[in-house]
């Protein structure tokens, strides 16, 4: 690792101020950033830890019935406390491994937008609102391709508000080595329609599979997907699977998510 200064502000305001410095970088749970720093692939002059800010931690319900998760809330806490949204809790319960879930945070995951991460699928399928220290961003506007988001430099995800679907499920087929999603599909059925978000598969990062959404909105069953075809074009192709394989898995995982949705 290159040398850097580390600060641990205790308020969002102080964190935002610290992140105003050029080359300062936010540190969430660090489960992706720290390995990156070890490889010397990033060279921040300062790291601003968001782990000591009480107002960014915890799970609660909003008046509008959304599950609100503080940006610095670890996955393990979401898994245990987001009981009002079982699909979300189930997703959080299978990110990484237990030790990673005790450190990794929803804000860190969404800010990084790894194309194989789980949380982006939850946010997009839920139609979540990403709340930052300066504004609110709809999930549909937030994800802008792999490792790319609508966040400005220094902007902090303070909270994520997840509308709660009637039924939902996240089905993940893991990349065997990293245990990230080779393909992960979140299906969320709302009163006004079904949202389907796919992670792990596309070269553009997480995306909504709109054909499946239409089919499932008409009939919420795995059979409704039968006539849909997923193209391997634009899918990630690597040593763990071809684009065609990932395309195939998108359909299989979507069907399984529908079948298990609760």
């Amino acid at each position: 690792m290159y040398e850097f200064e580390m600060t641990r502000p205790t308020t969002i305001a102080d964190a935002a101020k610290a992140l105003g410095d050029e080359d300062a970088q936010a540190l969430g749970g660090g489960q992706t950033l720290i390995p990156t720093l070890k490889q010397r692939l990033a060279m921040p002059s300062a790291l601003v830890s968001l782990g000591a800010i009480p107002e960014m931690k915890g799970v609660c319900m909003s008046d509008a019935g959304e599950v609100c998760v503080g940006g610095a809330t670890p996955h393990a806490v979401v898994a245990a406390e987001a009981t009002a949204y079982p699909g979300l809790a189930g997703l959080a319960a299978h990110i990484g491994d237990p030790a990673v879930r005790n450190r990794g945070t929803v804000g860190g995951s969404l800010a990084n937008n790894d194309p194989s991460a789980c949380y982006p699928a939850a946010a997009l399928a839920s139609g979540a609102t990403i709340v930052t220290n300066t504004r609110e961003i709809a999930a549909d506007d937030y994800f802008q391709g792999m490792f790319s988001t609508a966040l400005e430099d220094g902007e902090i995800i303070t909270e994520v508000r997840f509308p709660v679907p009637e039924v939902s499920h996240y089905e993940k087929f893991v990349q065997p080595a990293s245990r990230f999603a080779l393909v992960g599909v979140m299906v969320a059925k709302f009163a006004d329609g079904v949202r389907v978000a796919v992670t792990g598969a596309s070269e553009d990062g997480v995306y909504r599979w709109t054909e499946a959404e239409a089919a499932l909105s008409a009939s919420f069953s795995a059979d409704a997907l039968a006539d849909l075809a997923v193209s391997g074009d634009g899918m990630i192709s690597d040593l763990h699977g071809s684009g065609d394989y990932r395309a195939h898995l998108v359909k299989v995982m979507t069907g399984r998510a529908v079948a298990k949705a609760a």
């Binding site: 065997p176 080595a177 990293s178 990230f180 690597d238 040593l239 763990h240």
Partner: peptide, 23 residues
């Protein structure tokens, strides 16, 4: 079932960490 060491045609080791070499 899971372990494989993969070099690309230029000799870069694609499976050079536990992210890609499956234990």
């Amino acid at each position: 079932l899971v372990e494989n060491t993969t070099y690309d045609e230029n000799g870069q080791l694609l499976s050079a960490s536990y992210m890609d070499y499956c234990m």
